[in-house]
């Protein structure tokens, strides 16, 4: 059965993150859009929903937790993966309790993120409804 490509949104205020991860994630045939500002990303989300959102947690104006909350409010089935600057248990716990699919701590390798996205896509495709 042919895989429907997933729509992935990547938000990080570091320009290099998007630049490097876009080709890395597109290798699986998925569609990747990158954003450096939370507002623009949320506006884009309103136009078209994404299956997976990967967002940095520490950003100016809108932070990752806020994006997580807004995205889940807009689309409950979207998997949100949080990138944390410094992996502290509290932030991870807060993100997970608010419905994040998983979190990944900087610095990480593209393969690490691909692994998480793969798990998320499996869940999405199996139709399993992720509930918190």
């Amino acid at each position: 059965m042919s895989k429907q490509p997933l729509k992935i949104m990547l938000i990080d205020d570091e320009n290099i993150v998007g630049k490097r991860l876009k080709p890395a994630l597109e290798k699986t045939g998925d569609i990747v859009e990158t954003f450096e500002e939370g507002e623009k990303a949320l506006a884009r989300f309103d136009e078209t929903p994404f299956d997976i959102v990967v967002t940095d947690i520490r950003m100016e104006n809108i932070d990752g937790i806020e994006i997580l909350e807004q995205v889940l409010a807009k689309s409950g089935r979207t998997k949100v993966i949080i990138i944390t600057g410094y992996a502290t248990v509290e932030i991870a716990r807060e993100a997970l309790s608010k419905g994040a699919f998983d979190f990944i701590a900087k610095p990480f390798k593209p393969a690490d993120l691909r692994g998480i996205i793969e798990r998320a896509s499996k869940e999405l495709r199996s139709g399993f409804l992720h509930t918190t």
């Binding site: 570091e14 490097r20 410094y86 610095p107």
Partner: peptide, 25 residues
Amino acid sequence: VAGVAHELNNPLNNTLLTASMLTED
């Protein structure tokens, strides 16, 4: 240090991502 750790994570992450992609591709 808490702030600096975060600030260090970004260049480190950028370096790691770039170097990884360079090897990969």
